[in-house]
Amino acid sequence: MGTENVRFDTKIAVLLRDDLASWQRLNVTAFVVSGLGTAVPELIGEPYADADGVEHLPMFRQPVLVFEGAKEVLSAAHRKALSRSLHTAVFTSDLFGTGNDRDNRAAVRAVGTEQLDLVGLAVHGPRNAVDKILKGARMHP
């Protein structure tokens, strides 16, 4: 196995609103990253196996970077991502009050794009494009 650093041409990033509780940050991150692998299957690596031969599910083949920012930073990042036709997954504040996928989708569909109360966003795309989208955000502590 090589130990050289691998530099990816793309970036996976999660942007969280900075006023979320810890449990909300974890919940939102888990939900929004789950959408990226379905839209971009090549993001998923090979299955894992431990030394005993027990198989484990595959995961993303590259790091996921987590950022935070104010509500306005999320809205701007979302607009920029859409204008660049990048794959995004969103989590709105309304989803904290639902309990299933059907109701989640209905809650998002009920609100116009510019009015979405975003609390989380996952995006995948070329490194430089994702960096520009995240302008104003900071790495999650």
Rank of each mutant, 00 (worst) to 15 (best):
E55G: 11
Q24L: 06
H124P: 01
A106L: 12
R79I: 01
R17E: 03
T98H: 10
E68I: 06
E46Q: 14
L20C: 01
A122M: 10
W23S: 04
F60R: 00
V90C: 12
G37C: 08
A76H: 05
A13W: 03
L116Y: 14
L65I: 13
T10F: 02
M59W: 09
K135E: 15
F91E: 08
E114Q: 14
T10A: 03
L43V: 00
L57R: 05
G69D: 06
A107D: 05
S34D: 11
K71G: 06
K80R: 14
A137V: 07
T88K: 09
H140A: 08
K80M: 01
A137M: 10
R127A: 04
F31L: 10
R138S: 13
K135D: 13
H87R: 12
R17W: 04
H140T: 04
S22D: 08
L118D: 07
A30F: 07
V54R: 05
G136P: 10
P41I: 12
L16Q: 03
E4S: 14
R109A: 15
L82T: 05
L134Q: 11
L118N: 09
L74R: 03
V108E: 04
R105L: 13
P141N: 12
K132L: 09
N128C: 06
R61M: 01
D131E: 14
G112E: 15
A106M: 09
E72D: 13
V40Y: 00
N27E: 10
G97D: 14
T10L: 05
V32A: 03
T98N: 08
A106H: 05
G69T: 02
R127C: 03
R102Y: 09
A110R: 13
R109W: 05
H56Y: 15
G53N: 03
A21D: 08
V119Q: 08
V6L: 14
G120P: 06
G120T: 08
D117K: 15
S93V: 07
G125W: 00
N5W: 07
R61N: 03
T98F: 11
L134P: 08
R109L: 08
H56V: 06
D131H: 13
L26G: 11
R17D: 02
P126M: 08
G35D: 02
I133T: 14
V90L: 15
L82H: 02
G45D: 05
W23E: 02
D101H: 13
F96A: 10
M59H: 10
R79E: 01
G69R: 11
D52I: 04
G136E: 11
S85I: 05
V119N: 06
